[in-house]
Amino acid sequence: MSETITTATAADSGASATERFLADKTGGTGPGADTTRVNTLATEVITAVHQVIRRHHVSYEEYNALKSWLISVGQDGEWPLFLDVWIEHVVEEVAHASRKGSKGTIEGPYYVPGSPARPSVATLPMRENEAGTPLRFKGQVTDISGQPLAGALLEMWQADDDGLYAQFAPGIPEWNLRGSIVADAEGRFEVTTVQPAPYQIPTDGSCGKLIAAAGWHAWRPAHLHLKVSAPGHEPLTTQLYFKGGEHIEDDIASAVKPELVLDPRPAADGTGEVTYDFVLDPAS
């Protein structure tokens, strides 16, 4: 393992994820929030917790352990990690149930807007001799009628061969393996990168304590992250996985869908190559 891995901590990653979320996202409980909706959702969540306590005869010792753990999640800055790993996949499923185009999945905690712009044929920013199997990822962006979406934007980000993300672990260049690719007039793109590795979510913080106490594993399968957008169309957030990869069947974040699994094949130059097209729904 590299020095980078030994110095990356859950606390640092969690703090970065929390800071990024607060800077980039807006909440739903500020001025103008639907009071009736908040009342319904909050009441049902609290009632569900009450039911679990009654059904399992939760003791004060267990209650206090939960209380202590919830406090530590906040202190570690791991609420984005906890929610994105165990909750977001259901929110995504419900929010996009009527989508006719390509399948989406969770965003996760490691998205950063404003990555460097790249042309339709591009290489993601990476270090000299970046570790990992070279990968050529190409395809086309269309609407649901099959018409190309000229100039569609594909924001890509991924972990490196050590399972670490730029801006969330020390010692990695700011925009490493992050880029914003602008498709050509036919909506086509071709991106050279490296195939990412499976990785464990941070386990030295509060989420790791839950994983250990429950006897779960902490692994996510290797994946590419993408946000695909075009004017007049609903943006798509997704992750693409790799056929035969570890933890495809038991992703801790429950984010894998059959439609999102890639099967790269060796090209003439030895680089893994795969084609994957995106279909965007019209904006509602």
Rank of each mutant, 00 (worst) to 15 (best):
F242C: 03
A23Y: 07
G151F: 11
A166R: 15
K67F: 11
E246G: 06
D34Y: 11
V112Y: 13
A95K: 01
I211H: 00
E234N: 03
A268E: 15
P196Q: 05
G101C: 08
P202N: 12
A42I: 00
T123N: 10
A185C: 06
R220H: 12
P134F: 06
E78Q: 12
N176F: 00
Y110I: 02
D263Q: 14
L149P: 13
D143S: 04
L164W: 02
Q195V: 11
V91N: 00
Y199P: 04
A169G: 00
G139F: 05
Y241E: 15
V58L: 07
E246F: 06
Q239I: 05
H233L: 11
E78T: 08
S120I: 10
A183Q: 07
T142C: 13
E88D: 02
F137A: 09
D84W: 02
S16N: 12
Q167P: 11
Y111D: 09
S16C: 08
G14L: 10
K209R: 15
L262P: 05
V194Y: 02
A23E: 15
L226C: 12
G132K: 01
V38E: 11
N176A: 10
T18M: 03
A48C: 02
P173L: 08
I53F: 13
I181V: 12
M1C: 08
A253S: 15
P173R: 12
Q158V: 03
